Computed example of a mutant assay.
Amino acid sequence: MRPGAAAPWRDPDAAPFLRIEGLTKRFGGHAALDGIDLSIWRGEFFALLGGSGSGKSTLLRCLAGLATPDAGRILLDGQDMTGVPPHARPVNMMFQSYALFPHMDVARNIAYGLVQDGLPKPAIRARVEEMLALVRMEGFGARRPSDLSGGQRARVALARALAKRPKLLLLDEPLSALDKNLREATQFELMGIQGRTGTTFVIVTHDQEEAMTMATRLAVMDRGALVQVGTPAEVYEFPNSRFTAEFLGTANILEGVAEPGGIAVPSEPGLRIRHAGAAPQPPGARVAVALRPERMRIAPAPQDATHGENRVAGRVRDIAYLGDVFIVHVLTPGGAELRVSLHGATRSTERPVDWDDSVLLTWDAAATMVLPA
């Protein structure tokens, strides 16, 4: 969540702007959506995050009216959208392909929906100029989509989607066709535009970094269900399941057994994991321990180094240099391969460890995430 942003979802008296209740959609015997309940507040930039087949695009299509749910309802600003056709909903959509008309110039693309609604020509011209200014493309109105870069086409598609001033804007993988640098720049442009308009945005993406960068809150989806909903920081720092911990970011997972005051890892004799803040587990309960690579420390160790409390001995199996970070893979005596991230404060020729080095991995109790097995 951006600094200073309100958090109406924490106010028990605040009414959600978009309320999804028991939404179910089946294709044959497969439940693409399995009783989804979700509330989104006015002015949010909300992300639906999940892999292929998770149901995120089906949910977006139901919101747009392009798919009809088998059960449940969608309430937008207090109005039940059940049975309301797509063109009559105060909702617009920015498609993954942008769907710009190649035979029309930028201005006519942006004006298309306004013309269909029968707005007077002076009002259309004024709105088109307003949209061009909003996406910082003044002077581009006479160009064709084929004359634009990928980022410019994305901004035109956004301008067209916002021209009718929808209450809700849906974005379907809008940046997937852009290269990495352009995608990152466009993410911040989208955030700025959403902030200036105050329009509620719901974006579908499979890109975890994209969702965490732009969203005030996000929902992780899997097999038609919501696995976890929260701010990016909440979901990343406090995942409620092994699936979420592994899907959002990277996590090392160790299988453990709860003991008084800690967790033992049977596959790694001598390793005892201390944690802070996790709910107490009854002795003997099987749990999963998740450790983020960036929260672990690595240091050279003697050949005979052993496991201890929040300490794992191992051997460097692989190293990847990514410019700003080293990724070190460490193989433990029990056969686990743990990943450690080291942000590059030194040059690539000054690695703190090397291939086949004996090393010790350590971490703080607060870095330990205890999850259901």
Rank of each mutant, 00 (worst) to 15 (best):
S341C: 10
N109P: 05
L170M: 06
D357N: 15
L38R: 09
R143A: 08
G192V: 02
N92K: 09
R10A: 14
T231D: 02
V325N: 11
F95H: 11
P293F: 10
D364F: 10
G50N: 09
A301F: 04
D70E: 12
A285P: 03
D80A: 09
A251R: 07
L226C: 07
A299T: 13
F247L: 05
D318H: 15
M1F: 14
R311W: 06
G118E: 14
L48D: 12
V353H: 01
R26E: 13
G141M: 02
A133F: 08
Q281H: 11
M1S: 15
T332W: 06
E294V: 02
R292V: 06
M81H: 02
N240F: 04
T68Y: 03
P260H: 08
V106P: 02
G335V: 08
L49P: 02
P174W: 00
L48H: 09
E209D: 15
A211R: 02
L48N: 08
A107K: 00
I124N: 00
I253Y: 01
A345N: 07
A320S: 13
P372N: 10
H30T: 14
V289M: 01
S57D: 02
T346Y: 04
P145Q: 04
A159M: 09
E268C: 08
F27A: 09
P145S: 02
S176D: 09
S176H: 03
R242T: 15
A14G: 09
P300F: 09
R143H: 13
D77A: 15
L178W: 00
K180V: 15
P232S: 03
A278H: 11
G139P: 08
A211E: 04
Q187S: 13
L63I: 07
E138Q: 15
C62L: 05
I124E: 12
R196F: 13
M137S: 06
L49N: 01
R347V: 04
R160V: 10
H30E: 08
Y98W: 14
I253S: 10
A88F: 05
R73H: 11
